[in-house]
Design a protein around this nucleic acid. Structure first.
Lengths: 293, 293
DNA sequence: CCTAATCTCTGACTAAAGTCAGAGAAGCAT
DNA sequence: ATGCTTCTCTGACTTTAGTCAGAGATTAGG
């Protein structure tokens, strides 16, 4: 069995040679790759310039110029962001929307032409293989970001987590004022709140707080449903353990509820051992600890 | 189940965003992408300039300049091709070989880093998915080329075919002078010989010759062992049928031997029906025909 | 209010990635 | 030998894809 690095490199070489045709949809449009990519990325919903910079990896000066160009061509409108006048928002004109659709259609056609020689069964196999590869490569390229516990992403993730607990606990779950009240616990110097991002979208979260001289507690671990099954929970757990070490913790504890069976399984596999009740959390039925080396 | 075009386009977008890191192996080498790609493509075995042009899609003028640049840097040597003094061959100097190795190693490291967050099982899954996708995309992008039956690729493919028949026939197979003697039959205006290429390498072959006013015969159909299982035989058969139509045939015939069971299966699935013996081929035991619409 | 940070824009510029025309040499067929 | 095709190379040039500096406006925090 060949190793994945070799396979990946071979695939990459072969794929980029072939898939250039998908990236050629701008040809014939009278517009080079850069402005075409930008037009496509603005899309029917429009996009903030700061976001476009991040997504396309472009310098603000260059992006500004490209936008001016597209404006001059009558395909894009640039306005100030109502929430922050320093920022700009790009939207497509009607003409721009027509050009966007033409690009989209052409890309569809090019992709269709690429797979046309394959039988129906092969197309299905290809689709499945690509979906698997996509999922795993996305899973491999997530970023683990320490964020403020009251930031938009943190709030959103916690709301999802609490809603799930409410659904799964027999008597429901009432977070009370945990969202805002507990926030300081997860800020420096005695805590941290981590959101895992995939393409800028929150995929998981978890918090660590120091509870005494040698002990840290992991709380609020949650993985978005669509990202379960790719080992993200385990990686987040490992990451949070490392955060505990960085906070000076020699031991890490956590509590959980018996209905969260897959989480308990994961903790045990990660070396957590049952321990005595260490807090008065009304929803906790199991308590775990682990010595950090 | 989502369709493969949508999946492919999504994969493409996500993949090209991430895989840019693999293409960054030239960074820090003091050399931009173009010359780095060329150096890599010349490789430890060297390469002909005409071949490099095809592979990299570059203008001869620009390629000449890049080679001059690499020569000046002492990493490449350019000499005339001994077989044709108009052509050039590029080879790596010892210094160039060192730089090639460094590039190769760095690409390995970047790929390794990309998949590092995945578990062993996930890496295996990713490898399998990529291998499947690679294989199918390669299968989808083969070229069906009419070639001279005495060209190098045609000769090579036929030699492989004959060797396989020799192995599979109980009493062996002796082609006699078929290689050269039959060649005129597969040339315009009454015949054609097709080699299927994948990345410039022969993957399959087959010939069509007109045998009377309304009938063409398909012969010499062969698929390379490593390309079996992706429907290439069937596509070649369809292609050769089309070639028959282009030669004015309303009916197509072929002969085969009973031990070639998978071929017989394919013909039957493709609408060929058993017919009476139409020739004196000592190795043929089954004869098929099909009306072309 | 003040200060620092953030975002966009414009001036000025560079490097990279090429294209096209045409010349010279080599190869092939008649 | 002649004429045509093929390949590379050089001159001359253009477009694309940017980078960096710094100014002006806005926002946030103390």
């Amino acid at each position: 069995m060949e190793d994945v690095v070799t396979t990946l490199r071979r695939f990459n070489r072969s794929y980029t040679q072939r898939i250039g045709v998908l990236d050629d949809s701008f040809l014939g449009s009278g517009r080079p790759l850069g402005p075409s990519r930008l037009l496509f990325e603005i899309g029917p919903d429009g996009a903030g310039v700061l976001d476009l910079r991040a997504r396309l990896g472009l310098d603000s000066g260059y992006l500004s110029r490209l936008l001016r160009q597209l404006e001059a061509e009558g395909v894009v409108t640039v306005t100030s962001d109502p929430d922050d006048a320093r920022r700009r928002v790009g939207t497509l004109t009607d003409h721009g929307l027509g050009e966007w659709s033409a690009l989209d259609r052409k890309s569809d056609e090019l992709a269709e032409r690429l797979v046309a020689p394959l039988s129906e069964r092969q197309r299905q196999q290809l689709g499945e293989a690509l979906a698997t590869a996509d999922r795993l490569l996305r899973a491999a390229t997530m970023s683990f970001d320490a964020v403020d516990p009251e930031s938009a992403d943190a709030i959103w993730a916690l709301e999802q987590y609490f809603a799930e607990l409410d659904r799964r606990f027999p008597t429901g779950f009432d977070p009370g004022n945990a969202l805002r009240g507990d926030a300081p616990s997860y800020r420096s110097p005695n805590g941290v709140f981590v959101v895992v991002h995939s393409d800028g979208e929150p995929a998981a979260c978890g918090g660590v707080q120091r509870i005494d001289e040698t002990t840290c507690e992991i709380k609020r671990m949650w993985v978005r449903a669509e990202w379960r099954g790719v080992g993200l929970g385990r990686r987040l757990l490992d990451h949070l353990e490392q955060r505990c070490r960085e906070l000076g913790g020699a031991r890490v504890v956590l509590d959980t509820n018996s209905v969260l069976t897959e989480a308990i399984s994961m903790y045990e596999r990660a070396g957590f051992r049952s321990t005595e009740c260490y807090n008065d959390n009304p929803y906790a039925l199991r308590w775990f600890e682990k010595q950090l080396s």
